[in-house]
Every structure is written in structure tokens, then in C-alpha cells.
Design a protein around this nucleic acid. Structure first.
Lengths: 198, 198
DNA sequence: ATGATACGATACGGTATCGTATCGTTTAAC
DNA sequence: GTTAAACGATACGATACCGTATCGTATCAT
């Protein structure tokens, strides 16, 4: 099947940047944009077609159903963040939480996430996606906490999951539940509260 | 308009327990039940009619539109909790958080809330309702914290909003984001972490 | 008893959306 | 240049839901 050739890579992956791949990319971009605006509920294949300029027929040639497209679009949010390495636990945690605090009111995914959480409440496929997104958010924190354990800066018996909840919980709470602003002072207060109790 | 009479209260409020009020109550109950199952999105007037036995015509005689009914049903969630008074801040906070931890995985409203949060992200009317629900959740905590200030158990400069976020945030985080179980040990760890840092 | 009010059953128009069918046109491989 | 694959435009059937209209029936106050 995979034939070699003098030309540069004539395997199936040569279709990258082909017409097929361009359509696919255009649709996915528009889909995510639409998701950010209206959430999963008001997401419509017709609207994606209208806005992207790609014919609805073509969209259904790539995705068998509306839900498949939504899921693919949501998967774009599964992007693991950079893990800082400042040398100290407090420095690392501060870097991570400041980054998240900065993203929470602005990033597109912060507008889509409630929709995914809601859908995940009753749809296993979305529950799986949400789980992956969630792990992506928590991963850097878990890593710097593990490193702190390695350095002896943190007890090996420390409950990492609880600490993550104590750090991320208040930020998320402010963004989606109390809807209060998340300023540096708040973030620092949370970090101090958690770290001094270790 | 309001005519007095010898009989017991012949003002408009005499219609309580009348046919009108019975229909209204039946519909609202069914509506909330439906909300708990499918969230705001899949909520349908036709389904409320089917399930409740009340004719769709009658429903529209009471509520001008679907959204009005949804909002009325959501408003049932605005129920302020009891505020305990154990004498100590730790006792009060523990009582409140244990109650919430117990309700989070079971209570109907915990299944509807993500839907409301999502809708509130783009709909001011739902934002208002969510705000009221949220205040209802935080009110007991705020009160016991204020009492603690009055007793001198807590500094008058303590930032109550931050403390509330530090207490409720981790619980909500576990329920809707990390989806980990919320056991007594976790709740106590959070409380200890927050209170010892005051 | 009687009249007003509310209810039930049913049907309906209007709209939105999903997913498919058809067919002519463009792109790209060879 | 020829050919196959992918695309665009359009129309369509099917379904679900909203909100209204109609009309006969049940309830309730007086």
C-alpha cells in the first residue's frame, strides 16, 4: 500500500494541505468559533455551513453526524499547558494559577466549558472529552507538586488531588458560580492559604 | 376591585387550592422534574404536557412562553438553607459544608445547575436567577463568618468573599469538574486548610 | 340552577434543524 | 488532456417544537 517514491512523501499523509484537508480545517475552525459563541446547544450544521462557506454536503462527507462534529470541535480544547520550572513550589504554582486566572475571563474555552460540563452530565462521550480537558488543566499543577515532593519540599504523603482542588476550585468558583473578578490579590491569597497549610 | 366579605378572605388569593392553582402546581412540579433529567436544553412544553396530564393549551394560559415556564421552574431552586449555630466558627462551617457535600451528588438541583450556568453565560434573565441561587448557597457561610467576626473569632479585616470561594470552590470543583467523590475526609481537609490560615 | 371561567383534546401553521439526494463544477493526480 | 475524487448549490423528506385556534366539557362561585 505505502509505495515509496523519489518525490517527497507520497504516502497518504501527502493529502495534508490538499483540498480535503483545507475543507476540514476551515469547518473545524468555524465550528469552534460557533461553539464559543453559543455553546453546544445552539450549535448548528447549517450555521457552520453558512459561516464557513463550506457546503453542508461537504461537511457531512467528513463527519457522519452533527454530534461527531461538535465532539471534534470540542477536542480542540484539549491542549495541555506549559509546565513552568521556577525552582520553588510557590513559584511554579503562582505561574500556573496566574496564567489560568488570566485566561479564565478571556479564553474561548472558558465560554464553552459550562456547556460541555452540562452535556457531560448526561452524555458519556462528552464526559470523556471533559475528563481529558480537565486532566489537561490539572496536569501542570500535579507535575510541579510531584517535583516538590521529589525535592523534599512537600511531604510524600500529601494528597495531591485535594491540593489541586483547593487551588483550582476557588478560581473556577469565581469564574462560573459567584462571577466575581479574579484579580492577582485573590490568586495570591488562595496560594498563600494553601501552601502555608502544608 | 378587592371586595370585602363575611366569608373567609374573598380576595383574589382565595384561588389558592382552586383548579387554577392545582394546574399551576402540577405543571411546575413536572417542569422541575423534567429539568432535573435533561437540563434547560431538552426541556419541552409538549413533554411537560404529556407527562403532567395538563393540556398544552392550559400551560400556555398560565405562562406566555416556554422560557417563562423554565424560569419559573428554575426559581424553585432558590431555597435558602438553614444557618446552623454551634457556637464556634469551625462547627458552623463544618455543618454547612457537610450538608452541601451530602447534597451535591444527590439533590436534583445539582443536575440542573450546570445547565443554568451555561445558559446564564449568554442570557441575562438566567444570569439573574443563577445569581439568586448562588447567593442562597453562600448566604449561610457568609452569616457564620460574620458572626465569628462579631465574637472576635475572626479578624474584622478578613475577606469574606475569598474565604467563601476557598471553602465552596473545592467542593464544586469536585462535583462538576474533576468529578471525584466528595467524602468527609476531603471536606474536613478543606475546612482545616482554610481555618488554620486565618 | 346558571353563567362565567378554566380545562382537555385536537388540529394546525410556522419554523428550525437534521441528514440525504441530485447534479453540475472544480480540483488534482497521472 | 483525461479521469476520478471532492466540492458547491439546491432541493427535499422527516421530525420536533413553538405557540395559536377551535370547540366541547368540567368546575366553581353565587
Amino acid at each position: 500500500m505505502v509505495t515509496t517514491s523519489n518525490k517527497s512523501e507520497r504516502v497518504p499523509s501527502d493529502k495534508v494541505n490538499s483540498r480535503v484537508e483545507r475543507s476540514r480545517h476551515t469547518v473545524l475552525t468555524t465550528a469552534f468559533e460557533l461553539l464559543s459563541e453559543g455553546g453546544v446547544t445552539s450549535f448548528t450544521v447549517d450555521e457552520v455551513a453558512r459561516r464557513s462557506g463550506v457546503a453542508k454536503t461537504t461537511i457531512y462527507r467528513h463527519w457522519p453526524t452533527r454530534e461527531a462534529l461538535v465532539i471534534d470541535a470540542c477536542s480542540q480544547m484539549i491542549a495541555e499547558q506549559e509546565t513552568p520550572d521556577t525552582g520553588s513550589l510557590e513559584g511554579d504554582v503562582t505561574a500556573i494559577l496566574m496564567e489560568i486566572a488570566h485566561l479564565l475571563p478571556t479564553a474561548n474555552w472558558s465560554f464553552v466549558l459550562p456547556s460541555i460540563v452540562d452535556t457531560a452530565e448526561r452524555n458519556p462521550e462528552f464526559a470523556e472529552i471533559h475528563s481529558r480537558i480537565q486532566r489537561g488543566h490539572a496536569a501542570p499543577l500535579r507535575e510541579v507538586l510531584q517535583r516538590a515532593v521529589g525535592r523534599g519540599e512537600l511531604s510524600a504523603h500529601a494528597d495531591v488531588s485535594t491540593i489541586v482542588a483547593a487551588l483550582l476550585g476557588p478560581l473556577f468558583y469565581r469564574r462560573w458560580f459567584s462571577r466575581e473578578p479574579i484579580d492577582d490579590q485573590f490568586v495570591k491569597a488562595i496560594i498563600k492559604r494553601v501552601l502555608t497549610s502544608l
